[in-house]
């Protein structure tokens, strides 16, 4: 167990420029996606009129009151609670209320029956940043390393959980090719509804023509999800990440759903960028200006 936790939370060369850059990019990515989703949802909710399916806290409070300007007020608060700790590296506990308000924004936007998962890992990353500052006060190095490991942990758990859900709900016949045909038909209707037109691509045609190709695609998908928890181990992380990214491209090409945020987050957390940056910058000497900029941008 201790080795697993070392794999999750300990970095090679923790005080190096490479580790600092990777951790701050992880934080930047979390803040960027949080704000991007927050405002996208805030601008959409005034169209909503009725709660079709309450999620999360919406099971306990009537979120219809947010179907207007309150969603924008919430977005302003989330923006402040994310930008202050990110830019000034102070009051980092603000990430915790930012996470709670982000949850609220999510359940207000997705009260219409759809249960998307595209922002779940952004939610975990923000939760990790908030929890980190509560437990490791005023130690940005420790708190960023914790939030990073916390996110990696829930990434692995999420993918493996997705595979187990499929095996529990359908059983070992889940990868059978005709299931992919049915989903491709379903997603074709979503695209048709969105754009007014739809054409199946070459891979989709191939999957429709050959049952075994459709079965192979689904088998690769469930296998990759199942081994998702192996991302917890540092030596395996880049390989598992590559497989997961390949799976996301496969989902895009067959079912027209691209998990852009997941893919970007995987790229940021899944590869040992810190070691690569350290190798590249190892022999470069820095001027005092560069050091000042580095001090401001990093920590």
């Amino acid at each position: 167990m201790d080795r697993l936790f070392q794999n999750l939370f300990q970095f090679d060369a923790p005080d190096s420029i490479g580790t600092k850059i990777q951790l701050r990019i992880f934080e930047l990515c979390t803040v960027y996606f949080t704000l991007s989703y927050t405002w996208e949802w805030a601008l959409y909710v005034p169209r909503l009129s009725d709660v079709v399916l309450p999620l999360g806290i919406a099971n306990y409070i009537n979120v219809e009151i947010f179907f207007g300007d309150l969603a924008t007020v919430n977005a302003i608060l989330i923006t402040l609670f994310c930008l202050i700790p990110f830019l000034f590296k102070k009051l980092r506990w603000l990430y915790a209320p930012a996470f709670l308000l982000f949850h609220l924004q999510h359940v207000v936007r997705f009260s219409q029956g759809e249960i998307p998962h595209s922002a779940n890992m952004v939610g975990f990353a923000l939760m990790g940043l908030g929890l980190a500052e509560i437990f490791f006060r005023n130690d940005i190095k420790k708190s960023l390393a914790f939030a990073f490991g916390f996110t990696v942990f829930f990434f692995g758990l999420g993918y493996t959980s997705a595979a187990l859900s499929k095996l529990v709900a359908t059983g070992i016949t889940w990868p059978s090719g005709e299931h992919l045909w049915l989903w491709m038909g379903e997603k074709s209707i979503d695209i048709l509804s969105k754009t007014g037109e739809f054409q199946f691509n070459w891979l989709q045609q191939l999957a429709f023509d050959y049952w075994w190709i459709a079965t192979a695609i689904l088998s690769f998908g469930i296998f990759t999800e199942f081994i998702g928890f192996l991302i917890w181990w540092k030596p395996l992380r880049p390989y598992v990440t590559l497989l997961l990214i390949a799976m996301h491209f496969g989902i895009d090409w067959t079912m027209n759903i691209f998990f852009f945020t997941f893919t970007v987050q995987l790229i940021v957390i899944g590869f040992p960028w810190n070691n690569l940056i350290n190798k590249l910058t190892g022999s470069i000497s820095k001027s005092s200006t560069q050091k000042t900029i580095e001090q401001y941008l990093l920590y």
């Binding site: 999620l55 999360g56 949850h103 359940v107 997705f110 998962h117 890992m121 999420g158 709900a169 989903w183």
Partner: peptide, 14 residues
């Protein structure tokens, strides 16, 4: 219970 989830997307095939 967002962001907690069992990630059941596409779990019920057919």
């Amino acid at each position: 219970f967002w962001p907690f989830s069992i990630f059941p997307m596409f779990s019920q095939a057919g």
